[in-house]
Design a protein around this nucleic acid. Sequence first.
RNA 1: GCGUGGUUAGCUCAGUGGUAGAGCACUACCUUGACACGGUAGGGGUCGCAGGUUCGAACCCUGCACCGCGCACCA
Length: 758
Amino acid sequence: MACKVGPVTDSEGRVWLTIATTRPETIPGDTAVAVNPKDTRYAHLIGKHIIRPLPIQLPPEQKLIPIIGDEHVDFEFGTGVLKVTPAHDKADFDIGQRHKLPVVDIMNANGTMNELAGESLVGLDRFEARKVAVERLKELAVMVEEKPYENSVGFSQRADVPIEPRLSEQWFLKYPSVEVSTKCVANGQMKFYPDRWAKVYDHWLTNIQDWCISRQLWWGHQIPVWSKHFTDASEFFGNDDSDQDVLHDCISILGGEDIICVRYVRDEKPEAGFQESVPKTGGFTVFVGVEADTVKAPSGEEIALTSRLEKAGFTQDPDVLDTWFSSWLWPFATMGWPENTETLKKFYPTTDLVTGPDIIFFWVARMIMAGYEYMGELPFRNVYFTGIIRDKQGRKMSKTLGNSPDPLDLIARYGADALRFGTMRSAPLGQDVLFDEKDVELGRNFCNKLWNACRFRQMQGGEVQGEINAKLLSSDDQWILLRLDLAIREVSDALTGYNFATAVQSLYRFFWSEYCDWYVEASKAAFFGEDAALKANKVAVIDFVLSHLLRMFHPLLPFITEELWHGMGYAADMPEGQGGQTIMYAPWPKPLSADEKEAWGLDDTVETFANAKFELVTQGRNLKTQFNIGAGKKGKFTLKPAGQLDPKEAEVLRLLLSAEALALDPNYAPKKGTPTALTKLGELYLPLDGLVDSEAERTRLTKEVAKIQGEIEKVQQKLANPSFAQKVPPAVLEEHKQRLADWQTKLAQTKSAIEALS
RNA sequence: GCGUGGUUAGCUCAGUGGUAGAGCACUACCUUGACACGGUAGGGGUCGCAGGUUCGAACCCUGCACCGCGCACCA
């Protein structure tokens, strides 16, 4: 294919052109040879004729075909000369149309060659014919070279054979409302999520081609067009067959009502297409499109249209309609269209379409065009494109591979909510999803956790507590209310932007890491205590948090949240139409108001104090692990507080540390080698009765020093840069300085702790 | 060829300029009174490569490599 040849003139003065082809059997169907008019090797030959080698039996003067110039020809490719076979190649057909070339179909419908292919090929299968054609070319001594060439031909999925391009008659639809459909997405009236698909949509619409709606299948909706050939107008009109008279009646009665459509195609000029009136001369074919088998005439008369057409000798088109031809009507045809029903009025246009990006042309674009064309308005305002679910290896789910899980089986084993939640959690915006059963398992575990968290509330007893008493709020209560507020804002924002995975992430963090891990554990200090008012108020906070949480979870976990909504008694607490009946009608949680925040004392100090507590607890737990006071063992801590510490807070800390005791002693003098954690709330000691291992503690603290020094170095390097202080925003500068100070304090403390060891 | 998405911990993926994160998997300990479908602690990453912009880059720009997807082409 790389041969860069030009025309060759032989000793007899004849000019030869070399042509590369992978389908020599189609040579008898060639009706021209094309070169690029800009190709200097060949341009001078345009307008001359060339002798086509096949069919071998025909005399040369019957095989003269023109040499034409066409921009389509790539002179880098092959020899730069293209044989043009309009009946057997899409691109060649287009060239043929441009140059008004004859179209010679040399094959039968079953893939064998017909008589036009010549004596030596007729009757042969196309692949057999290919071999024979090569032999004939060799006989003629016109074969230059034969070599293997790999190209990608389309294969029929059903028959598993190479697809043979062949001319046939098909029905095409000129797309309607193209311009307005293109604009509505381009100008943002309709939004795509993720919006990059808008570009794909735009590209397709601006290069749109007529829609081939014929399908050669045995199933489907048969195209409702009947046709019959007539030799002339007198045959069409001059027949006294009564059925045909009725047909004429139908045409005259119904033609104007758009119930039937009658068109005429002249034998002589088929390319002129459908004519609206009966041709005066020559033969023609009559096409009748009908709306229904039986129609009602304006006079009220029932007319069995199709049976009369058949009696009059008309036959229905054997092809069926493309399935998408009904799907594009879906946004309105599902709601009683063409009647203007109440449902249609209410739900057209709708807000969101959720679908896969792989059917953006097949379905989405066509629905938009049909919407504008038949309803005069866009069908939906937002299109959310999901990822495609693939298997663990990234392959598409397919019946052939058998790699698709059975959703009903998964639901039976893990629950419907688990499947939904797990899949949502692993489905980032615009990315394909690799399906892993582990995700469903995670969903199930999550549901279990939610169920148990609600159970914990129920075990505290009492009715649903509506009123929160601000005076009785602990720092933990204030903290969880602030976190709830943040979660409500994050989840609402995520859902508004169609970021479902982000919404799941926020909820997961809030519920599991914040509510369960910290708040529920901390709340046990009150529940294990004796103060009834405090307990009741804590229950009120929990009810407030959970009733908001369940509503936020509801779109992701519809079944379990409904169950819990009623089980927890939150339904009974709400008005009938706003959650009393079902959580589905409950209002979406609103972020806390400024008034609420003020009344409950939710300010910045809440967060700071909570973080200090969590830091102390984490370090204390760390100490326990380091010194092998396992989770089962309690341990006794002593805290030398940095300032005032409410005994109630100390009790919470003790519980979170899972310690037997937490002594508060401002004057504590630890024994040498007592393990220490240095925190903002004070120095936390873990006295180990007689079992002090100074070396172990020294090792631990030395490691700690190294880590701290590393952090200090990082911050110092930044601050040492002269332009850092000048150019950085003040808040960032302040934050870096504070960070350095914190680490330095910690370093000093840790070093003195090491001193104290010796 | 044109367009488009990706490359971050063993795996799946968040993170769009200021101290690298989650879930799973892994290690150790624990059946304590919501939950072992659980808890606590821990190990594990020079954020694909090379330049550039910036006081500062996983993040912005340029180029490259590799893996996808779509469209066109396939004489």
